[in-house]
Design a protein around this nucleic acid. Structure first.
Lengths: 227, 227
DNA sequence: TAGATTGTTAATCGATTAACAATC
DNA sequence: TAGATTGTTAATCGATTAACAATC
Protein backbone atom coordinates (compact mmCIF):
# COMPACT_ATOMS: atom_id res chain seq x y z
CA UNK A 1 0.00 0.00 0.00
CA UNK A 2 1.61 3.25 -1.13
CA UNK A 3 1.83 6.43 0.93
CA UNK A 4 -1.27 8.48 0.52
CA UNK A 5 -2.23 12.02 1.30
CA UNK A 6 -5.17 12.41 3.67
CA UNK A 7 -8.16 13.86 1.83
CA UNK A 8 -9.52 17.31 2.55
CA UNK A 9 -11.45 16.93 5.74
CA UNK A 10 -14.90 18.33 6.26
CA UNK A 11 -15.52 18.89 9.93
CA UNK A 12 -19.12 19.88 9.42
CA UNK A 13 -21.87 17.45 8.62
CA UNK A 14 -20.33 14.63 10.61
CA UNK A 15 -22.90 13.17 13.05
CA UNK A 16 -22.32 13.76 16.74
CA UNK A 17 -22.50 10.03 17.41
CA UNK A 18 -19.68 9.45 14.96
CA UNK A 19 -17.44 12.16 16.44
CA UNK A 20 -17.91 10.63 19.88
CA UNK A 21 -16.72 7.24 18.68
CA UNK A 22 -13.63 8.40 16.79
CA UNK A 23 -11.43 8.72 19.90
CA UNK A 24 -12.15 5.07 20.72
CA UNK A 25 -11.10 3.95 17.25
CA UNK A 26 -7.98 6.08 17.56
CA UNK A 27 -7.18 4.40 20.82
CA UNK A 28 -7.53 0.90 19.42
CA UNK A 29 -5.45 1.83 16.37
CA UNK A 30 -2.75 3.16 18.65
CA UNK A 31 -2.47 -0.23 20.30
CA UNK A 32 -2.58 -2.09 16.98
CA UNK A 33 0.22 0.10 15.68
CA UNK A 34 2.24 -0.50 18.83
CA UNK A 35 1.90 -4.24 18.38
CA UNK A 36 3.12 -4.08 14.80
CA UNK A 37 -0.16 -4.89 13.04
CA UNK A 38 -0.18 -2.98 9.76
CA UNK A 39 -3.62 -3.77 8.29
CA UNK A 40 -7.09 -4.26 9.77
CA UNK A 41 -10.46 -5.08 8.33
CA UNK A 42 -13.53 -3.16 9.45
CA UNK A 43 -14.78 -6.37 11.07
CA UNK A 44 -11.61 -6.74 13.15
CA UNK A 45 -11.33 -3.10 14.16
CA UNK A 46 -15.04 -2.98 14.96
CA UNK A 47 -14.84 -6.00 17.24
CA UNK A 48 -11.90 -4.51 19.12
CA UNK A 49 -13.84 -1.26 19.53
CA UNK A 50 -17.12 -2.79 20.59
CA UNK A 51 -19.20 -1.67 17.61
CA UNK A 52 -20.58 -3.36 14.48
CA UNK A 53 -18.55 -3.34 11.29
CA UNK A 54 -21.31 -1.54 9.41
CA UNK A 55 -21.30 1.25 11.95
CA UNK A 56 -17.53 1.50 11.83
CA UNK A 57 -17.45 1.77 8.05
CA UNK A 58 -20.20 4.35 8.07
CA UNK A 59 -18.36 6.37 10.68
CA UNK A 60 -15.09 6.30 8.78
CA UNK A 61 -16.81 7.09 5.49
CA UNK A 62 -17.61 10.54 6.88
CA UNK A 63 -13.90 11.36 6.98
CA UNK A 64 -13.30 10.19 3.43
CA UNK A 65 -12.42 6.99 1.64
CA UNK A 66 -9.69 5.73 3.93
CA UNK A 67 -9.60 2.00 3.22
CA UNK A 68 -8.88 -0.29 0.29
CA UNK A 69 -11.62 -2.52 -1.03
CA UNK A 70 -10.76 -6.16 -0.74
CA UNK A 71 -7.88 -5.38 1.61
CA UNK A 72 -8.93 -3.33 4.63
CA UNK A 73 -7.43 -0.31 6.34
CA UNK A 74 -3.76 0.56 6.71
CA UNK A 75 -3.37 0.96 10.47
CA UNK A 76 -0.83 3.75 10.35
CA UNK A 77 -2.62 5.71 7.67
CA UNK A 78 -5.99 5.35 9.37
CA UNK A 79 -4.51 6.36 12.69
CA UNK A 80 -2.99 9.50 11.24
CA UNK A 81 -6.14 10.32 9.29
CA UNK A 82 -8.35 10.22 12.38
CA UNK A 83 -5.75 11.97 14.53
CA UNK A 84 -5.41 14.76 11.95
CA UNK A 85 -9.14 15.07 11.55
CA UNK A 86 -9.68 15.33 15.28
CA UNK A 87 -6.71 17.67 15.52
CA UNK A 88 -5.06 15.88 18.43
CA UNK A 89 -1.71 17.48 17.65
CA UNK A 90 -2.82 20.91 18.84
CA UNK A 91 -1.88 21.01 22.52
CA UNK A 92 -4.66 21.63 25.03
CA UNK A 93 -4.16 23.26 28.41
CA UNK A 94 -6.15 21.68 31.24
CA UNK A 95 -6.89 23.09 34.67
CA UNK A 96 -8.23 20.80 37.40
CA UNK A 97 -10.33 22.24 40.22
CA UNK A 98 -10.53 20.07 43.31
CA UNK A 99 -7.68 17.77 44.37
CA UNK A 100 -9.34 15.21 46.55
CA UNK A 101 -8.99 11.55 45.69
CA UNK A 102 -10.58 11.95 42.30
CA UNK A 103 -8.78 15.14 41.29
CA UNK A 104 -5.46 13.59 42.25
CA UNK A 105 -6.28 10.51 40.23
CA UNK A 106 -7.07 12.68 37.21
CA UNK A 107 -3.95 14.83 37.63
CA UNK A 108 -1.71 11.80 37.47
CA UNK A 109 -3.76 10.15 34.73
CA UNK A 110 -1.66 9.03 31.81
CA UNK A 111 -4.30 10.21 29.34
CA UNK A 112 -3.61 13.82 30.20
CA UNK A 113 0.12 13.59 29.68
CA UNK A 114 -0.20 11.83 26.33
CA UNK A 115 -2.81 12.71 23.73
CA UNK A 116 -1.90 16.38 23.45
CA UNK A 117 -3.09 17.45 26.90
CA UNK A 118 -1.03 19.44 29.33
CA UNK A 119 -1.95 20.23 32.94
CA UNK A 120 -1.46 23.97 33.27
CA UNK A 121 -2.95 24.33 36.72
CA UNK A 122 -4.28 22.63 39.83
CA UNK A 123 -6.61 24.49 42.18
CA UNK A 124 -8.12 23.65 45.57
CA UNK A 125 -9.68 25.51 48.47
CA UNK A 126 -8.23 23.33 51.24
CA UNK A 127 -5.17 24.94 52.91
CA UNK A 128 -3.88 21.44 53.67
CA UNK A 129 -3.70 20.70 49.94
CA UNK A 130 -2.57 24.09 48.63
CA UNK A 131 1.14 24.16 47.91
CA UNK A 132 1.42 20.42 47.38
CA UNK A 133 3.43 19.37 44.36
CA UNK A 134 1.71 16.89 42.05
CA UNK A 135 3.54 14.89 39.42
CA UNK A 136 1.59 15.25 36.14
CA UNK A 137 3.37 13.19 33.52
CA UNK A 138 6.81 14.75 33.26
CA UNK A 139 5.96 18.03 34.98
CA UNK A 140 5.58 18.93 38.64
CA UNK A 141 2.59 21.19 39.22
CA UNK A 142 1.87 23.07 42.44
CA UNK A 143 -1.67 23.18 43.83
CA UNK A 144 -2.78 26.81 44.09
CA UNK A 145 -5.61 28.51 45.99
CA UNK A 146 -8.98 29.24 44.39
CA UNK A 147 -8.09 32.94 44.38
CA UNK A 148 -5.43 32.18 41.77
CA UNK A 149 -7.92 30.53 39.41
CA UNK A 150 -8.21 33.50 37.02
CA UNK A 151 -4.44 33.56 36.50
CA UNK A 152 -4.16 29.78 36.31
CA UNK A 153 -7.06 29.36 33.88
CA UNK A 154 -5.75 32.04 31.54
CA UNK A 155 -3.68 29.46 29.66
CA UNK A 156 -6.26 26.67 29.90
CA UNK A 157 -8.74 25.70 27.21
CA UNK A 158 -10.37 22.93 29.20
CA UNK A 159 -11.49 22.90 32.84
CA UNK A 160 -12.04 19.78 34.89
CA UNK A 161 -14.25 19.95 37.97
CA UNK A 162 -13.52 17.32 40.62
CA UNK A 163 -14.89 19.11 43.67
CA UNK A 164 -17.69 17.94 45.95
CA UNK A 165 -21.13 18.60 44.48
CA UNK A 166 -21.77 21.59 46.70
CA UNK A 167 -18.71 23.44 45.41
CA UNK A 168 -19.08 22.54 41.74
CA UNK A 169 -21.31 25.39 40.54
CA UNK A 170 -19.00 27.94 42.14
CA UNK A 171 -15.96 26.30 40.55
CA UNK A 172 -17.78 26.30 37.23
CA UNK A 173 -18.69 29.98 37.50
CA UNK A 174 -15.08 30.88 38.23
CA UNK A 175 -13.82 28.84 35.30
CA UNK A 176 -16.32 30.48 32.97
CA UNK A 177 -15.41 33.93 34.32
CA UNK A 178 -11.79 33.11 33.56
CA UNK A 179 -12.74 32.39 29.95
CA UNK A 180 -12.83 28.59 30.00
CA UNK A 181 -15.62 27.42 27.70
CA UNK A 182 -15.18 23.64 27.77
CA UNK A 183 -15.71 21.84 31.04
CA UNK A 184 -15.57 18.21 32.11
CA UNK A 185 -17.65 17.78 35.26
CA UNK A 186 -17.16 14.86 37.64
CA UNK A 187 -19.20 16.39 40.46
CA UNK A 188 -22.60 14.78 40.97
CA UNK A 189 -24.70 17.78 39.96
CA UNK A 190 -25.97 19.60 36.91
CA UNK A 191 -24.05 22.78 36.12
CA UNK A 192 -25.82 25.75 34.63
CA UNK A 193 -23.65 27.73 32.26
CA UNK A 194 -24.15 30.67 29.89
CA UNK A 195 -24.68 29.99 26.17
CA UNK A 196 -21.51 29.07 24.34
CA UNK A 197 -20.06 27.09 27.21
CA UNK A 198 -20.06 23.31 26.81
CA UNK A 199 -20.16 20.90 29.72
CA UNK A 200 -19.68 17.15 29.56
CA UNK A 201 -20.72 15.43 32.75
CA UNK A 202 -19.56 12.10 34.13
CA UNK A 203 -21.61 11.03 37.12
CA UNK A 204 -20.41 7.80 38.65
CA UNK A 205 -23.53 7.55 40.79
CA UNK A 206 -25.78 7.77 37.75
CA UNK A 207 -23.76 5.15 35.87
CA UNK A 208 -24.01 2.84 38.85
CA UNK A 209 -27.75 3.33 39.13
CA UNK A 210 -28.18 2.46 35.47
CA UNK A 211 -26.09 -0.67 35.86
CA UNK A 212 -27.94 -1.63 39.03
CA UNK A 213 -31.25 -1.25 37.21
CA UNK A 214 -30.06 -3.48 34.40
CA UNK A 215 -29.02 -6.08 36.93
CA UNK A 216 -32.41 -5.99 38.63
CA UNK A 217 -34.08 -6.27 35.26
CA UNK A 218 -31.86 -9.22 34.33
CA UNK A 219 -33.02 -11.26 37.29
CA UNK A 220 -36.55 -10.55 36.04
CA UNK A 221 -37.70 -9.14 39.31
CA UNK A 222 -40.02 -11.96 40.26
CA UNK A 223 -42.25 -11.28 43.25
CA UNK A 224 -42.90 -7.92 44.85
CA UNK A 225 -40.68 -6.23 47.38
CA UNK A 226 -42.19 -5.10 50.63
CA UNK A 227 -44.07 -1.83 50.33
CA UNK B 1 -52.41 16.88 47.29
CA UNK B 2 -53.54 13.65 48.85
CA UNK B 3 -51.40 10.56 49.35
CA UNK B 4 -51.43 8.41 46.28
CA UNK B 5 -50.44 4.88 45.47
CA UNK B 6 -47.80 4.45 42.81
CA UNK B 7 -49.34 2.89 39.70
CA UNK B 8 -48.42 -0.58 38.49
CA UNK B 9 -45.05 -0.12 36.86
CA UNK B 10 -44.15 -1.62 33.54
CA UNK B 11 -40.40 -2.05 33.29
CA UNK B 12 -40.52 -3.18 29.71
CA UNK B 13 -41.14 -0.88 26.80
CA UNK B 14 -39.41 2.06 28.42
CA UNK B 15 -36.80 3.53 26.05
CA UNK B 16 -33.16 3.11 26.99
CA UNK B 17 -32.60 6.85 26.73
CA UNK B 18 -35.33 7.42 29.31
CA UNK B 19 -33.97 4.84 31.75
CA UNK B 20 -30.54 6.47 31.55
CA UNK B 21 -31.96 9.85 32.51
CA UNK B 22 -34.09 8.71 35.45
CA UNK B 23 -31.18 8.57 37.93
CA UNK B 24 -30.42 12.24 37.17
CA UNK B 25 -34.00 13.25 37.86
CA UNK B 26 -33.91 11.24 41.05
CA UNK B 27 -30.79 13.05 42.11
CA UNK B 28 -32.27 16.49 41.52
CA UNK B 29 -35.47 15.51 43.32
CA UNK B 30 -33.41 14.34 46.27
CA UNK B 31 -31.90 17.81 46.59
CA UNK B 32 -35.26 19.53 46.11
CA UNK B 33 -36.74 17.39 48.85
CA UNK B 34 -33.81 18.15 51.14
CA UNK B 35 -34.34 21.87 50.62
CA UNK B 36 -38.02 21.61 51.52
CA UNK B 37 -39.49 22.26 48.08
CA UNK B 38 -42.68 20.23 47.81
CA UNK B 39 -43.86 20.87 44.24
CA UNK B 40 -42.08 21.31 40.89
CA UNK B 41 -43.25 21.97 37.38
CA UNK B 42 -41.78 20.00 34.51
CA UNK B 43 -40.16 23.21 33.30
CA UNK B 44 -38.41 23.76 36.61
CA UNK B 45 -37.30 20.17 37.11
CA UNK B 46 -36.16 19.97 33.51
CA UNK B 47 -34.01 23.08 33.81
CA UNK B 48 -32.35 21.76 36.96
CA UNK B 49 -31.65 18.46 35.17
CA UNK B 50 -30.35 19.93 31.94
CA UNK B 51 -33.09 18.64 29.65
CA UNK B 52 -36.13 20.16 27.95
CA UNK B 53 -39.50 20.11 29.67
CA UNK B 54 -41.05 18.15 26.80
CA UNK B 55 -38.42 15.45 27.14
CA UNK B 56 -38.88 15.31 30.89
CA UNK B 57 -42.64 14.92 30.64
CA UNK B 58 -42.29 12.25 27.98
CA UNK B 59 -39.79 10.39 30.12
CA UNK B 60 -41.99 10.49 33.20
CA UNK B 61 -45.08 9.52 31.21
CA UNK B 62 -43.49 6.10 30.66
CA UNK B 63 -43.70 5.40 34.39
CA UNK B 64 -47.32 6.44 34.64
CA UNK B 65 -49.31 9.59 35.22
CA UNK B 66 -47.32 11.03 38.12
CA UNK B 67 -48.18 14.72 38.02
CA UNK B 68 -51.22 16.91 38.39
CA UNK B 69 -52.36 19.02 35.46
CA UNK B 70 -52.28 22.71 36.24
CA UNK B 71 -50.18 22.10 39.34
CA UNK B 72 -47.02 20.11 38.64
CA UNK B 73 -45.34 17.20 40.39
CA UNK B 74 -45.28 16.47 44.09
CA UNK B 75 -41.56 16.23 44.83
CA UNK B 76 -41.83 13.51 47.44
CA UNK B 77 -44.27 11.39 45.48
CA UNK B 78 -42.28 11.72 42.27
CA UNK B 79 -39.07 10.88 44.07
CA UNK B 80 -40.56 7.75 45.56
CA UNK B 81 -42.18 6.75 42.27
CA UNK B 82 -38.90 6.91 40.36
CA UNK B 83 -36.95 5.30 43.20
CA UNK B 84 -39.45 2.45 43.40
CA UNK B 85 -39.49 2.00 39.65
CA UNK B 86 -35.70 1.86 39.47
CA UNK B 87 -35.69 -0.36 42.53
CA UNK B 88 -32.99 1.57 44.39
CA UNK B 89 -34.06 0.04 47.69
CA UNK B 90 -32.66 -3.37 46.82
CA UNK B 91 -29.09 -3.31 48.09
CA UNK B 92 -26.31 -3.95 45.56
CA UNK B 93 -22.94 -5.45 46.45
CA UNK B 94 -20.01 -3.81 44.67
CA UNK B 95 -16.48 -5.13 44.30
CA UNK B 96 -13.71 -2.79 43.14
CA UNK B 97 -10.67 -4.20 41.36
CA UNK B 98 -7.64 -1.91 41.37
CA UNK B 99 -6.91 0.48 44.23
CA UNK B 100 -4.66 3.06 42.70
CA UNK B 101 -5.66 6.72 42.83
CA UNK B 102 -8.88 6.15 40.94
CA UNK B 103 -9.95 2.98 42.73
CA UNK B 104 -9.37 4.65 46.09
CA UNK B 105 -11.40 7.64 44.97
CA UNK B 106 -14.25 5.33 44.00
CA UNK B 107 -14.05 3.29 47.21
CA UNK B 108 -14.52 6.41 49.32
CA UNK B 109 -17.12 7.87 46.96
CA UNK B 110 -20.24 8.96 48.75
CA UNK B 111 -22.43 7.61 45.95
CA UNK B 112 -21.53 4.04 46.83
CA UNK B 113 -22.39 4.35 50.48
CA UNK B 114 -25.76 6.01 49.83
CA UNK B 115 -28.09 4.98 47.03
CA UNK B 116 -28.31 1.33 47.98
CA UNK B 117 -24.73 0.36 47.16
CA UNK B 118 -22.44 -1.48 49.52
CA UNK B 119 -18.75 -2.18 48.96
CA UNK B 120 -18.35 -5.91 49.61
CA UNK B 121 -14.77 -6.18 48.44
CA UNK B 122 -11.60 -4.41 47.35
CA UNK B 123 -8.98 -6.26 45.32
CA UNK B 124 -5.50 -5.34 44.10
CA UNK B 125 -2.39 -7.14 42.88
CA UNK B 126 0.14 -4.82 44.51
CA UNK B 127 1.56 -6.28 47.76
CA UNK B 128 2.09 -2.71 48.99
CA UNK B 129 -1.66 -2.10 48.80
CA UNK B 130 -2.96 -5.50 49.92
CA UNK B 131 -4.02 -5.46 53.54
CA UNK B 132 -4.67 -1.76 53.63
CA UNK B 133 -7.91 -0.75 55.34
CA UNK B 134 -10.13 1.59 53.33
CA UNK B 135 -12.99 3.55 54.83
CA UNK B 136 -16.06 2.99 52.61
CA UNK B 137 -18.90 4.99 54.05
CA UNK B 138 -19.44 3.55 57.53
CA UNK B 139 -17.54 0.32 56.94
CA UNK B 140 -13.83 -0.46 56.95
CA UNK B 141 -12.89 -2.78 54.09
CA UNK B 142 -9.56 -4.57 53.73
CA UNK B 143 -7.83 -4.74 50.34
CA UNK B 144 -7.36 -8.37 49.39
CA UNK B 145 -5.16 -10.10 46.79
CA UNK B 146 -6.41 -11.00 43.32
CA UNK B 147 -6.40 -14.67 44.33
CA UNK B 148 -9.26 -13.91 46.70
CA UNK B 149 -11.43 -12.43 43.95
CA UNK B 150 -13.70 -15.48 43.55
CA UNK B 151 -14.57 -15.45 47.24
CA UNK B 152 -14.89 -11.66 47.39
CA UNK B 153 -17.03 -11.42 44.26
CA UNK B 154 -19.42 -14.13 45.43
CA UNK B 155 -21.57 -11.56 47.24
CA UNK B 156 -21.17 -8.85 44.59
CA UNK B 157 -23.65 -8.05 41.86
CA UNK B 158 -21.59 -5.25 40.32
CA UNK B 159 -17.88 -5.14 39.55
CA UNK B 160 -15.88 -1.95 39.08
CA UNK B 161 -12.60 -2.10 37.18
CA UNK B 162 -10.11 0.63 38.05
CA UNK B 163 -6.90 -1.08 37.04
CA UNK B 164 -4.40 0.09 34.41
CA UNK B 165 -5.53 -0.72 30.87
CA UNK B 166 -3.16 -3.65 30.53
CA UNK B 167 -4.69 -5.46 33.52
CA UNK B 168 -8.32 -4.70 32.78
CA UNK B 169 -9.23 -7.65 30.56
CA UNK B 170 -7.76 -10.07 33.08
CA UNK B 171 -9.68 -8.40 35.90
CA UNK B 172 -12.81 -8.58 33.79
CA UNK B 173 -12.35 -12.28 33.03
CA UNK B 174 -11.92 -13.03 36.71
CA UNK B 175 -15.02 -11.05 37.63
CA UNK B 176 -17.05 -12.86 34.99
CA UNK B 177 -15.68 -16.22 36.12
CA UNK B 178 -16.81 -15.32 39.64
CA UNK B 179 -20.33 -14.75 38.35
CA UNK B 180 -20.40 -10.96 38.12
CA UNK B 181 -22.46 -9.96 35.11
CA UNK B 182 -22.55 -6.18 35.42
CA UNK B 183 -19.31 -4.28 35.16
CA UNK B 184 -18.36 -0.61 35.26
CA UNK B 185 -15.05 -0.14 33.47
CA UNK B 186 -12.82 2.89 34.08
CA UNK B 187 -9.78 1.39 32.35
CA UNK B 188 -8.99 2.92 28.95
CA UNK B 189 -9.72 -0.17 26.88
CA UNK B 190 -12.57 -2.15 25.40
CA UNK B 191 -13.45 -5.28 27.34
CA UNK B 192 -14.68 -8.36 25.54
CA UNK B 193 -17.16 -10.36 27.53
CA UNK B 194 -19.39 -13.37 26.92
CA UNK B 195 -23.06 -12.85 26.03
CA UNK B 196 -25.20 -11.91 28.99
CA UNK B 197 -22.54 -9.79 30.64
CA UNK B 198 -23.05 -6.02 30.46
CA UNK B 199 -20.23 -3.53 30.56
CA UNK B 200 -20.55 0.22 30.89
CA UNK B 201 -17.33 2.04 30.10
CA UNK B 202 -16.17 5.44 31.27
CA UNK B 203 -13.04 6.54 29.47
CA UNK B 204 -11.73 9.87 30.67
CA UNK B 205 -9.32 10.09 27.76
CA UNK B 206 -12.13 9.69 25.25
CA UNK B 207 -14.27 12.30 27.00
CA UNK B 208 -11.35 14.71 26.95
CA UNK B 209 -10.71 14.11 23.27
CA UNK B 210 -14.34 14.83 22.45
CA UNK B 211 -14.24 18.03 24.48
CA UNK B 212 -10.95 19.06 22.89
CA UNK B 213 -12.43 18.49 19.45
CA UNK B 214 -15.40 20.68 20.29
CA UNK B 215 -13.06 23.39 21.47
CA UNK B 216 -11.06 23.26 18.26
CA UNK B 217 -14.28 23.37 16.29
CA UNK B 218 -15.50 26.34 18.31
CA UNK B 219 -12.51 28.47 17.33
CA UNK B 220 -13.45 27.56 13.74
CA UNK B 221 -10.04 26.29 12.89
CA UNK B 222 -9.10 28.99 10.41
CA UNK B 223 -5.92 28.31 8.42
CA UNK B 224 -4.14 25.03 8.07
CA UNK B 225 -1.75 23.53 10.55
CA UNK B 226 1.70 22.53 9.35
CA UNK B 227 1.69 19.24 7.49
C1' DT C 1 -10.51 -14.50 -12.66
C1' DA C 2 -12.23 -15.48 -7.84
C1' DG C 3 -12.38 -14.02 -3.28
C1' DA C 4 -12.48 -10.37 -0.12
C1' DT C 5 -13.78 -6.13 1.80
C1' DT C 6 -14.91 -1.38 1.32
C1' DG C 7 -18.13 2.63 0.67
C1' DT C 8 -22.86 3.65 -0.07
C1' DT C 9 -27.66 3.07 -0.42
C1' DA C 10 -32.23 2.61 1.26
C1' DA C 11 -35.00 0.86 4.88
C1' DT C 12 -35.70 0.60 9.66
C1' DC C 13 -35.58 2.00 14.07
C1' DG C 14 -35.63 4.97 18.03
C1' DA C 15 -35.43 9.53 20.12
C1' DT C 16 -36.66 14.37 20.13
C1' DT C 17 -39.61 18.13 19.54
C1' DA C 18 -43.61 21.19 19.13
C1' DA C 19 -48.16 21.65 19.76
C1' DC C 20 -52.38 21.07 22.08
C1' DA C 21 -56.32 18.72 24.16
C1' DA C 22 -57.28 17.29 28.74
C1' DT C 23 -57.92 18.77 33.25
C1' DC C 24 -56.62 20.53 37.70
C1' DT D 1 -64.39 30.58 35.23
C1' DA D 2 -59.54 31.68 33.88
C1' DG D 3 -54.91 30.40 34.18
C1' DA D 4 -51.62 26.90 34.44
C1' DT D 5 -49.48 22.67 33.44
C1' DT D 6 -49.68 17.88 32.46
C1' DG D 7 -49.90 13.75 29.31
C1' DT D 8 -50.17 12.58 24.56
C1' DT D 9 -50.09 13.01 19.74
C1' DA D 10 -48.02 13.40 15.33
C1' DA D 11 -44.21 15.18 12.84
C1' DT D 12 -39.41 15.56 12.58
C1' DC D 13 -35.00 14.31 13.15
C1' DG D 14 -30.95 11.48 13.55
C1' DA D 15 -28.75 7.01 14.09
C1' DT D 16 -28.47 2.15 13.03
C1' DT D 17 -28.68 -1.72 10.18
C1' DA D 18 -28.62 -4.91 6.27
C1' DA D 19 -27.55 -5.52 1.83
C1' DC D 20 -24.88 -5.00 -2.18
C1' DA D 21 -22.52 -2.72 -6.03
C1' DA D 22 -17.91 -1.18 -6.59
C1' DT D 23 -13.33 -2.52 -6.77
C1' DC D 24 -9.01 -4.11 -5.02
Amino acid sequence: MSLRIAPARARDGVPTATVERLPSYLHVLERLRASGISTVSSADLAERSGVTSAKLRKDLSHLGSLGTRGVGYDVDFLYRSIADWLGVHEPMGVVIVGLGNLGSALATYRGFAGGGFRIVGLVDSDPAVIGRQVSCGDALVTVRPVADLPAVAATAQIGVIATPGAAAQDACDRLVAAGVEHILNFAPCFLSVPPGVEVRAIDVGVELQILAFRRRQAVHHTGAVSA
